[in-house]
Simulated assay, not measured.
Amino acid sequence: MLKINKYAAIDIGSNAIRLLIATVIEKEGYAPQFKKTSLVRLPIRLGADVFLEGKISDVNYERMKDAMKAYSLIMKNHKIKKYRACATSAMREAENGIQVAKKLFDATGIDIQIIDGNDEAAIIATTDLNHLIQDNKVFLYVDVGGGSTEFTVFANGNTITSRSFKLGTVRIINDMVKESIWNDVKSWIVENTKDYDKIEVIGSGGNINSIYRFSEKKVGKPLSYFFLANFYEEVKSLTYHERIFEMQMNPDRADVIVPATRIYLSAMKWSKAKNIYVPKIGLADGIVKSLYNEQKARDLLVK
């Protein structure tokens, strides 16, 4: 007999706010199946407020409130077992971030946890990468967001180290990333990958997922450094409007795709990786996995 439950994750990022509804299917004697049932993405670019003005504007607060009300109704309709809402770089740097979270809770009932970069990296690391992270391989996991990028090194099936940097696409397009940040990232990657002979990169985030769709690769096949470098030159050569019309990109993707590609390419270059895998997972998937694991732990305590 199957045991079926739904969990929800709200990822409040610097570029967009996402709601993931995941169905977890359990059968005794088998590993649980996690199925993405619904994904709703709203391009509320909080980073444009916070990184330039230091706080979330009244206009974007109202948009967030509408989003949380809508997400609450969607979760109710799906009859989810449990949810978690996590806010990352933009809200944790906003001077009114805690105040906005409290106002949103009072207005919508959605409890938002503002997490730091290390927590973000740790949650992402809980995602199911077993089909990629094999005992005899080394990977650099790169999760590019609007406000920050999280890097994790996996070796021999274990997490070796992770680090979050204020290197995000929204920051870059607003000219807020100094060369020293790029140098810090380069130094960290080189230092933490230099002892390994062969490294592959795992990329996550909306931008690398978009690039993967353009590649028309079969699911599971990696993108080469050569492909990514050519893609980078192509998108750089086009104007913002040309990317929207000729490449049919969403307006909120067409500007951040360029800095995102640069980050992935740089990570590959500095780690000397020839390929990047794109499993299409991220913070929301990690939140769902952690919710499920916490529920299983509670069930065991009850027994």
Rank of each mutant, 00 (worst) to 15 (best):
N130A: 14
I199E: 06
N230K: 12
V153L: 13
N275H: 09
G220W: 05
A284P: 02
F154R: 02
K103T: 10
K178F: 07
I208H: 08
T149F: 03
K79W: 06
L301T: 13
K198A: 13
N174Q: 13
I172A: 12
E93V: 14
V288C: 02
I98H: 06
G282D: 04
D255A: 14
R45F: 02
D106C: 05
D143G: 03
H241D: 15
K217S: 14
I44L: 07
E53G: 03
T239L: 08
E191K: 14
E294V: 04
A229C: 11
I123E: 07
L129W: 09
I257E: 10
K236Y: 07
F105M: 06
L265Q: 07
G205T: 06
E26W: 09
L167A: 04
T152V: 11
L223H: 09
M64Q: 12
L265I: 14
I12K: 00
V138L: 01
N192T: 01
I56Y: 01
N250V: 00
N60C: 02
N15A: 13
Y7A: 04
L301N: 10
I133D: 01
L140I: 10
L46R: 12
A87Q: 04
V256A: 11
A70M: 13
Q33E: 15
A87W: 01
Y71M: 15
R298W: 05
I202S: 03
T149Y: 02
A94M: 08
F165N: 09
S89T: 10
K236F: 06
V185G: 06
L104Q: 08
M91S: 13
L52Q: 12
I74D: 05
D116Y: 03
V100K: 07
V59W: 00
F165E: 08
D195G: 02
N275T: 05
I98A: 09
G282W: 01
I211F: 07
A101W: 02
G147P: 02
G146C: 09
A121L: 09
Q33N: 09
A122T: 08
W182D: 08
K35R: 15
G220L: 04
S162E: 08
G97L: 08
L238N: 10
H78D: 15
G13E: 02
D49C: 10
I208D: 08
I44E: 05
I211C: 10
I202T: 06
A48R: 12
D116V: 12
W188L: 09
L19P: 11
G168Q: 03
S57Y: 05
N209R: 11
R41F: 00
I12Q: 01
S72I: 00
A85Q: 08
V144P: 00
S180G: 08
M91C: 15
A67N: 07
